[in-house]
Structures are given as C-alpha cells and as structure tokens.
C-alpha cells in the first residue's frame, strides 16, 4: 500500500502536465521569437473545437483527431502570421499586446457565433475515463496519457530545437536576424515555421485540455493567465524550464488544496510570486 501522498503527487504532476501542454506553444512563440502572443489560447480553443467536431460529430477516434487539431491551429496561425503578425515583429511590446488581444476578441465572437455559447463536452470512450489501481491507489488513465504526451513533446522539442539543422536555423534567426540573413538562412520562413509550431502546439494543448477543463468561447481568455504564469516562471526560451515550472506549479497547487484547502485559491499565485522574486528570469531563464 502506498500512502496517499503519492496519489496527491501524481495528480499534481498530471495537472502540471496539463498546464505544460497548454503553455508549451507560448514558450516557443514568446520564449524563442520574443513575440507576445496573447491570442495563444485562441489557437488552443481552435484545436479544442476541431477535436470536439471530429470526435462528437464525425465519430473520429480521439487520438486521430489530435494531429488534425495541431495542423488546424498551425495552418490558421500561418495565415495570421503572413497577414498581421509579421508586420509587428519589430513593433513595441504594447502594440503586439493590442493586436493579439484584438484577435482574441474576434476569435471569441467567432466561436460564439459558429459553435454557440454552450459548453462542448467531449465524448470519450469509457476506457479513457476510468482509472487503474496500483498498490491501493487509483491512477486515472487520462492523466497517465497527459503525462506521457507531455514527456514525449518535451523530448521531441528539445531534440528538434537543440540538435537539428532546423533548430539551429531558428535559433540563429531569432538571436541575430541580420547575420542569419547574411548566412543565407530564409528568416521569414524560419519565423513562419516557428510560429506555426508554437500555435500548432497550442492547438494540441487545447485538444488535450478540454476533457478536463471544458470548452466554450470564453476559453480563449480564461486560461491565458495560467499560460503566462508557466512561461514566466519557467524562463523565456526554455522548454525544459516550462516543463519544470508546470510540474512545480501543478504539484504545489494540488498538494496545497489537499493539505491546506484554506489557501487553495492563493497557492498557485503565491508560488509564482515567490519563484519570480527568487529568480526574476525564471527557473531556467537566460535573459
């Protein structure tokens, strides 16, 4: 028999991974490209709606819908990147904020118009909703899946950005755009691809999150704060940092709610404030 603390740790870690999956795309766009994309959760919402549509209406298996959610968000983001975002890469932070908030407003209205304001519950097969018993503790299947996907994405992203030619090009383009151009790197393309990657990850995160947090048009605003918390605590430009931050925040939130429920609402913010005062650049931040 395992003591209950293991169950709490597991739930907390899984919750952290949920936060990570929602934020990792932002960690790419804000962290690597230095673009403040507050419309991040709009792309996540798009991924969510695509998934609900495919699974509930067309009867697709959940796992087959996930890549489509990624692609839909990535493609939509390329359209926005080409028309609106790229004009503002060198604009002030505040203009980026205004543009992306504007896009979020538009996306919320569009979602309400197309999908109505009602909650869109995802209909998953029963085996994804149960739990596995192990040494006297219950481990939810869906949470195990979240953890697995989060670990896989972290490994893939780190490998891809650190060890491939594409990753090197992106880092070069972000660090010194003029120099990168001089070396013959197609910077426009690199930026567009990075942005698509970030937004695609947002779409995937949204698709995975809705089973736990639900989906309606206000999604685009509701989870923005959590995304910003994870990315800032993790440190800009660090995928591993976001992963660590999400795990710490998730575990402290769930453990806090279990052991000191009076502090439940405060904990995630207290942890954030504490960590940022200790390390202003974030856990793994370089800048």
């Amino acid at each position: 028999m395992l003591p209950p603390i293991f169950g709490v740790l597991f739930d907390g870690f899984a919750y952290g991974m949920l936060l990570f999956l929602l934020s990792v795309g932002q960690s790419v766009t804000l962290g690597m490209m230095n673009f403040i994309n507050l419309a991040h959760c709009s792309f996540a919402m798009l991924g969510g709606y695509v998934t609900v549509l495919l699974v509930n209406r067309y009867g697709w298996p959940f796992f087959a819908a996930l890549p489509i959610a990624f692609l839909a968000a990535a493609l939509a983001s390329v359209a926005f990147e080409r028309t609106l975002y790229r004009r503002l890469y060198r604009a002030s932070d505040l203009d980026q904020v205004l543009l992306t908030i504007g896009i979020t407003f538009i996306s919320v209205a569009a979602a309400a118009y197309i999908f109505t304001t009602a909650q869109q519950p995802l209909q998953l097969p029963a085996y994804l909703r149960g739990s596995l018993s192990f040494m006297g503790l219950d481990f939810a299947v869906y949470r195990l899946i979240l953890i697995g996907i989060a670990l896989a994405i972290t490994a893939l992203l780190v490998a891809c950005l650190e060890y491939t030619r594409f990753g090197a090009k992106i880092r070069a383009a972000v660090d010194n755009e003029r120099m990168a151009r001089g070396l013959g790197i197609d910077v426009d393309r690199a930026f567009a691809l990075t942005f698509a990657l970030g937004s695609g990850l947002a779409g995937l995160g949204g698709a995975l999150a809705i089973e736990i947090v639900g989906l309606d048009p206000s999604f685009a605003f509701t989870y923005l704060v959590y995304v910003l918390i994870v990315v800032s605590v993790g440190g800009l430009g660090s995928i591993g940092g976001s992963f660590a931050a999400a795990a710490v925040l998730g575990i402290s939130d769930i453990a806090g709610k279990y052991y000191v429920p009076q502090l439940g609402a405060f904990l995630i913010y207290l942890v954030m404030v504490g960590l940022l005062m200790w390390r202003p650049a974030g856990l793994f931040g370089k800048r």
Binding site: L84, L88, I103, I106
Partner: peptide, 22 residues
C-alpha cells in the same frame, strides 16, 4: 449585445496596423 466584442477586436487590429503606438 451578443457579438459586440467582434467589432472591438476589429477596432484594435485596425488601430495597430494603421496607427502604431496608439
């Protein structure tokens, strides 16, 4: 009353693209 924020969004995007810095 149901979709006004669509137009607010359009306003913000238009201002940013046409009149940077507010």
């Amino acid at each position: 009353p149901q979709y006004w924020y669509f137009w607010i969004g359009v306003l913000l995007v238009a201002v940013v693209t046409l009149l940077p810095n507010g």
